[in-house]
Amino acid sequence: MSNQTISNIVWQGSSVHKPERQQLNGHKSCILWLTGYSGSGKSTLANEVDKRLHQMGVRSYVLDGDNIRHGLNKGLGFTPEDRRENIRRIGEVAKLFVDAGMIPITAFISPFREDRQLVRNLVEPGEFIEVYVKCPLEECEQRDPKGLYKKARIGEIPEFTGVSSPYEEPENPELIIETHRFTIDQSAEKIIQYLMKRI
């Protein structure tokens, strides 16, 4: 996009603001950002948390990495540059959900600290909850629910996190959920308990 095109775009303000939307929904909004290796249980955990929040009357929605790549991020590969663009786009979408007074629950490997920090910076302090879905790489590879590690090990998938591309662990996440030690029910409950103190 040229500078001239950008200069012709003016931000349109909203007549209804985030606090008013939050008041209507009956809770504050924030991003629940689940990060971790493929196979760590991010998507399963995100959906369990979403189900529980729905039952509690909390407005939430799961933004899953694989699902987003079928639409919004279709065409992006797995080079470091494409991974960054993948996270940048979903960060902007998640920000819109927060502005709408909802709780987006994202399930993305999001391997780079810098990219996760970029999303954190998009919202107000306290509105980004980084959840490190921690599971040893060996355990994730043993689970391998989609057969991706096997393909990566024989070179069929390049730039695969944990095999041929790095994963940078969160340094100060709001929550660490060890899915190799706790059940999905226990893990989801831990997130719910944390969240209820903040919304």
Score class of each variant (00 low, 15 high):
91 G>Y: 07
81 E>R: 12
166 P>K: 11
93 V>F: 04
92 E>K: 06
180 H>D: 15
53 L>R: 03
116 R>C: 03
126 G>N: 06
80 P>C: 07
50 D>G: 00
33 W>T: 00
190 K>H: 12
31 I>T: 05
168 E>D: 12
78 F>L: 13
44 T>S: 14
19 P>C: 00
94 A>W: 10
108 F>R: 06
13 G>R: 08
135 C>I: 03
122 L>K: 05
114 E>T: 10
163 V>K: 00
144 D>A: 01
48 E>Y: 06
34 L>H: 00
60 S>A: 14
161 T>F: 12
30 C>V: 04
187 S>N: 11
128 F>E: 04
58 V>C: 08
63 L>E: 07
40 S>P: 13
72 L>V: 15
70 H>S: 11
80 P>Y: 01
100 A>N: 13
120 R>I: 03
112 F>G: 03
60 S>Q: 02
99 D>W: 08
169 E>T: 09
84 R>C: 00
156 E>Q: 15
3 N>A: 12
30 C>K: 08
178 E>Q: 12
97 F>G: 02
67 N>G: 03
55 Q>R: 11
38 S>M: 09
69 R>V: 04
187 S>G: 08
110 S>G: 09
28 K>S: 15
45 L>P: 14
40 S>H: 12
112 F>Q: 01
11 W>Q: 03
122 L>D: 11
102 M>L: 14
39 G>T: 07
78 F>N: 11
85 E>Y: 02
180 H>F: 05
166 P>C: 11
170 P>L: 02
58 V>D: 04
1 M>R: 01
197 K>V: 04
14 S>Q: 15
128 F>K: 07
148 L>I: 06
48 E>W: 07
